[in-house]
Nucleic acid binder design. Structure first.
Length: 786
DNA sequence: GTGTGATATCTTTTT
DNA sequence: GATATCACAC
């Protein structure tokens, strides 16, 4: 499968000619690089580390380096380039295509850590007793499974919160701690005991076993198992060491221990490894990234060549200096002096708003004015925020001014319920052992198989060591307690899935996908819902089927390295191939070409590696940015500061910062101080205005209730309560014993007592209609009656 | 077993 | 505000 490709002589001649052309072009291009960049590009042999300051042409170095290698005659199949996001991989690929043409570029092994390792595991996974068609569990699947395990072990689900346990397991795997290591490590066990969760290790054990039985790997397994493979099968290791004679790693500062070790192993034979990164932009330690990997890289390779890229080509002097003034407050860093020869540029503007809604309006207005004054397209602007939840207020404001925008991340396409449902059908058809997929769809659309039945099936499955699907097939014998009619329903379901399964190789992905969507009743179920959301769900499902169609008709895969030997394109591409390709696509990886001219809104994390002429960083408030979760330790604060650094350095021309004095956070109003980061920027870079910028001539539009939104759960007709007149929310502090209040549902009442603090303030209220109630104030939305 | 409404919990950041 | 979970009626 991975043997060298034979090239016949004619092809070879063509190739030589072609390479000549590249050589000319490369020399031309090398002239455009500065000295440090050139050195980093041409030092192709031996270990190399490139410390690349923000905007210093990092991607350029990586792409030119690959082009340079190809130019020297390196076989593209022998180059491995690892990135963290699909977007980064795709962009790099596109740029290399521009440099060397598509044939060579396409054959470079380039992708995210996860996708490349998934590919290797599909080929070699049998060594670890995984089938090639294993499922990849996303975070929701993992948490669901953990939730079930906790339930089965009869542990307290509040104590053993799935998210908490999952991050614990994830951290263990990222550090290559096996189940046995975990259970045998007294330190870890002690910390679990102190946290009052002594059974965490046991959950890890069950989780691991259940994933394995379901032929499923989670994201961490893709790294963990690759490591296992390379550790325990020396021949396999050697095979890939030989194959990947040149290795490049982007964003090296964000690697975790597992990634570090895999790269180290793969590079051990040739040591032609080039890592590129910037310690100042390390923002993923919450995901196990270990900044020491880059700080200590030298220790692993004594003859390491290090190049520092310190000239920033992206931003104005003001932005670069402001960013430097921020990052210099951090202690842990590799010394470097980022500078630029660009213009001084505009000062940083700070917008102050009273509320989050006003902040949105100010930002939208500012964008509108800048657009008009400077005749800029929408795509010149990016709005960056700390949390996805902040996008709502911004969206509303932009909609009001009719400025087109595009949100990246957040509820991505593949996370929508209807999409996950449909995909769960596909998953089960491809891999019937996929228990999580089974649970998701066994009774959707409703087919009379309820919780009790599913519980019985689960029990039978675990007693017999088989998958739930297997148990369902044998429902009549394995689960005697079931009613005859129930068994009949179960058999109908399993027969349907099995029928689809046999069609896998015979039909194209699209044909089979369409058939599944139809005969499962999914489409009918969706069509029955004529509400606005129902229609959009229908559209989304159709969109997925369209993607299947495109996929089926596509002649070549994005990664033809899959089929180095077989270039047989006549077989139409099947559903299991489709599932392999999309399971690692998360964010809106689909790029709509016609959606180009829009303002970008995204989290700062998502913005890493991107650049925009105008950048707005919003929500600069204590407890939000820096996040309240990060105030505990210096290391955490430093990471938030690096995040701010990343945000600032996305900008080419101008940065605008904003904050709101109050904002709605999970339902109720909270007041926050302006962020400490505002003070940390040297004030000489900030435009000094005391003038409060107003949000436009019709200032009160912000406050009006927009009639555009249709309430999701339409009230029943007999509920003739008048439309809520501009209800003023009552600050929680004003709720005191003795006060008369009104509740939306319970009506009027009197506060008897108030207890608790912070977000958990509770009030005991006596309502005339319903009697005494205890209410959490942050949800109750009490209104004071005068 | 299904469907409804009330209640509880929740939010960093992502492959 | 949005979603998972629980309790209860059918």
């Amino acid at each position: 499968m991975l043997t060298t490709v034979c090239i016949n002589t004619q092809q070879a001649r063509k190739r030589t000619l072609f390479l000549q052309k590249i050589a000319d072009r490369l020399n031309e291009l090398l002239d455009q690089l500065n000295t440090a960049q050139q050195q980093a590009v041409v030092s192709s042999e031996g270990p190399v580390m490139v410390i690349a300051g923000a905007g210093s042409g990092k991607t350029r170095v990586l792409t030119y380096r690959i082009a340079y290698l190809l130019n020297k005659g390196t076989d593209p199949f022998n180059i491995l380039a690892l990135t963290f996001t699909n977007k980064a991989a795709r962009e790099m690929k596109e740029r290399i295509i521009q440099l060397v043409g598509s044939n060579d570029a396409r054959n470079v092994w380039m992708g995210t850590f996860h996708s490349v390792f998934a590919k290797i595991l599909r080929i070699e996974g049998h060594l670890l007793e995984y089938p090639h068609n294993f499922t990849i569990y996303d975070t929701d699947d993992s948490k669901n499974l953990i939730k079930n395990i906790v339930k089965e072990m009869q542990l307290d689900p509040k104590l053993y919160a799935p998210g908490m346990i999952f991050s614990r397991i994830s951290a263990a795997k990222s550090n290559l701690i096996s189940v046995d290591d975990y259970l045998g490590n007294s330190e870890i066990m002690e910390s679990d005991r102190i946290a009052n969760r002594p059974m965490t290790g046991e959950i890890y054990r069950f989780y691991k076993a259940r994933c394995f039985k379901a032929s499923a790997m989670d994201f961490d397994d893709l790294l963990y198992n690759t490591n296992l493979l390379l550790r325990d099968f020396p021949e396999t290791l050697l095979k890939y060491q030989k194959k990947f004679s040149y290795i490049l790693v982007d964003e090296y500062q964000d690697t975790n221990h597992a990634q570090y070790l895999i790269v180290k192993k793969l590079a051990a034979r040739n040591e032609n490894i080039c890592v590129v990164g910037d310690d100042a932009q390390s923002i993923y330690s919450f995901r196990g990234a270990n900044i020491q990997n880059i700080l200590n890289f030298r220790n692993d390779y004594p003859d390491l060549q290090t190049f520092k890229l310190e000239q920033n080509y992206r931003s104005t002097k003001t932005i670069v200096s402001a960013a430097n003034s921020i990052i210099s407050r951090n202690k842990d860093q590799i010394y470097k002096q980022v500078w630029t020869s660009n213009d001084e540029g505009a000062l940083i503007q700070v917008l102050r708003a009273a509320t989050d809604a006003e902040e949105g309006a100010l930002v939208a207005n500012s964008v509108f004015q800048a657009k008009m004054n400077e005749q800029l397209p929408n795509s010149a602007f990016a709005i960056l925020y700390r949390t996805n939840a902040q996008s709502r207020a911004l969206e509303e404001a932009f909609r009001k001014l009719n400025i087109p925008y595009r949100i990246y991340g957040g509820l991505s396409f593949y996370k929508r319920k209807e999409i996950k449902d449909l995909l769960a059908y596909f998953r089960l058809v491809v891999n019937p052992a996929d228990d999580e997929a089974f649970y998701r769809i066994i009774n959707y659309p409703a087919r009379g198989i309820g919780n009790t039945t599913v519980d019985k099936l689960t029990l039978a499955a675990s007693e017999n060591g088989i998958s739930v699907f297997e148990a369902a097939i044998q429902a009549n014998i394995a689960v005697p307690a079931l009613a005859k009619s129930t068994v009949q329903k179960i058999i109908e379901f399993t027969e349907m899935i099995r029928a689809f399964h046999t069609q896998l190789a015979k039909m194209s992905a699209y044909e089979l996908g369409r058939k599944i969507a139809t005969s499962s009743g999914l489409l009918k179920e969706l069509a029955a819902d004529q509400s606005e959301e129902g229609l959009s769900r229908m559209q989304n499902s159709e969109e997925l089927l369209n993607a299947l169609k495109d996929f089926s008709e596509l002649e070549q895969t994005l990664f033809p390295a899959d089929n180095e030997e077989t270039t047989d394109n006549t077989v139409s591409r099947t559903l299991d191939l489709f599932m392999q390709e999309i399971s690692l696509l998360t964010d809106a990886d689909s790029e709509d070409e016609d959606e180009n001219n829009k303002v970008t809104m995204m989290t700062i994390h998502a913005a890493k590696g991107l650049e925009f002429p105008h950048v707005y960083i919003v929500g600069l408030e204590e407890n939000l940015f820096p996040s309240i979760m990060s105030l505990q330790s210096r290391a955490d604060i430093e990471e938030e500061r690096r995040l701010f650094y990343v945000a600032l350095t996305r900008a080419e021309k101008k940065v605008t910062l904003s904050y709101a004095e109050s904002r709605y956070r999970w339902g109720n109003l909270s007041m926050n101080e302006p962020s400490r980061f505002l003070d940390e920027i040297n004030s000489s870079f900030i435009e000094q205005t005391t003038r409060r910028i107003r949000s436009g001539p019709d200032n009160n539009t912000v406050m009006q209730k927009a009639p555009v939104f249709i309430k999701k759960n339409l009230k029943k007709i007999n509920d003739s309560s008048p439309a809520p007149e501009n209800r003023s929310e009552t600050p929680v502090e004003l709720i005191q014993p003795g006060i008369e209040v009104e509740h939306e549902r319970f009506g009027k009442g009197k506060v008897l007592s108030v207890e608790g603090s912070g977000p958990n303030i509770k009030a005991t209220v006596f309502f005339q209609a319903v009697g005494q109630k205890q209410l959490l104030l942050k949800y109750a939305r009490l209104r004071i009656v005068n």
